[in-house]
Design a protein around this nucleic acid. Sequence first.
DNA 1: CGGCCTGTTGATGCGACTCAATTCAGGTGG
DNA 2: CCACCTGAATTGAGTCGCATCAACAGGCCG
Lengths: 239, 239
Amino acid sequence: MTNASLKDPGDKKKLLKEIYLFSGLADSDLAALANISIRKDFLRESPIFWEGREAQGFFILLSGYVKLVKSSLDGKEYIIRLVNPKETFGEAAVFAESAYPVTAISLEDCQTLYFPKRDFLELLTSSPRLARNMLATMSHLLYHLTRQLEDLSLKEVSARLARYLLEKCLEKHDKIEAGLALDLPITKTHLAAYLGTISETLSRTLARFKSLGVIAMDKGRITINDPLLLQDIAKGRKI
Amino acid sequence: MTNASLKDPGDKKKLLKEIYLFSGLADSDLAALANISIRKDFLRESPIFWEGREAQGFFILLSGYVKLVKSSLDGKEYIIRLVNPKETFGEAAVFAESAYPVTAISLEDCQTLYFPKRDFLELLTSSPRLARNMLATMSHLLYHLTRQLEDLSLKEVSARLARYLLEKCLEKHDKIEAGLALDLPITKTHLAAYLGTISETLSRTLARFKSLGVIAMDKGRITINDPLLLQDIAKGRKI
DNA sequence: CGGCCTGTTGATGCGACTCAATTCAGGTGG
DNA sequence: CCACCTGAATTGAGTCGCATCAACAGGCCG
């Protein structure tokens, strides 16, 4: 892990403006946030924080990808969340006087901004807008986790995979349509851990989708051929 | 559903003081909260809100029990959370400009206080302490959901049941010790849905625990005989 | 007493994990 | 530039946990 400071504090402020958590904030608040934040960079496959360790602050991911995971005693890993650039992570632990509930590990070299809990809570007191944004952020997380619980408890792997593909498609193209393609941003092993399964099962399920004509595969690139059937599968229809 | 108002507004304020979400608030804030809140009572097995419906506010449960559920097309049900008296529910949807992520259904006759989103957000702006409490509340929820995800993805039914029993024991007696007993507050069918399984499997798992001497059962009453083994099972040890 | 709901127990089948073998792709060094 | 190595991905065979289906026992209430 390396620490570095940006050449110009104004650069940081510009960065912060693009983060959802800080949208609509007064310039003075942004300056204060830029002031308390610390640049922390990590090499690939580095732990950023560990489950169970006391939380001293939270992070904003500037570049690269980070996974938030739970691990079992026998080495299995479930990915709770894949963090994209401009998203925050580790927030929850800051407000509960508690430990991080997950372990965060960088998937590739990445840059982050770190906000120490103490200083951030002070700013929070003086900025209702910041508090409101943080509540919205956490609401989205809750919504996300709720849906994952639904998937894990009620749906099988094919439905979870179908939903993932549809989401990624919507994310990239803003619509679901036959012929649209998407690239898997991570390895299939990671995707399997995110979907609550293992790479072998994911591989078989993708092959089944392909033989049904729902998708086409070319290396890491997936093309959606039958979005309607895919949506049915995502809803739980047996195939 | 029936609406009723308390005889004396002061009664409401007294109620609110005991809610974690409102701890440490100024008297004026409590009065304002009492003022905007609306008493709503429900008979057993009544829907309080539906997944997907736009959220107009959140609830505090005063008495009775409420389940928050996700349902699948083929009628299966997963209980995301069992709400106890003095706890809030439906908060998340208030801050995300979005719909309720789950359906809330009363398990027995219950009394609630309802806080309309609009009025509550106004109060939130003027009370940093209230905002901070809400953030802490949502952090706890996130923590809780994270652990459920861990359980569902990495552990089997026996581990989930073991953890539940240990938690209930700790909740009731403040310690884990051989000989301590606890009563199941809900039917076994409901508990099964909460643990992400079905009543038959829960029944078999309990029977297995009993034959191993880990617990004893007498009607709905469960006595923990071997807490150490139970903790091992909760961690994922095969039995 | 008879109906209903909850819970228990048995037999069976399916989905997905495990283990193992093989192929494939990317990166390295001779 | 090719041979090599390593980790990822694929495919097959076997096993296991758990859901499903079905039958039945017990408690509660009209």
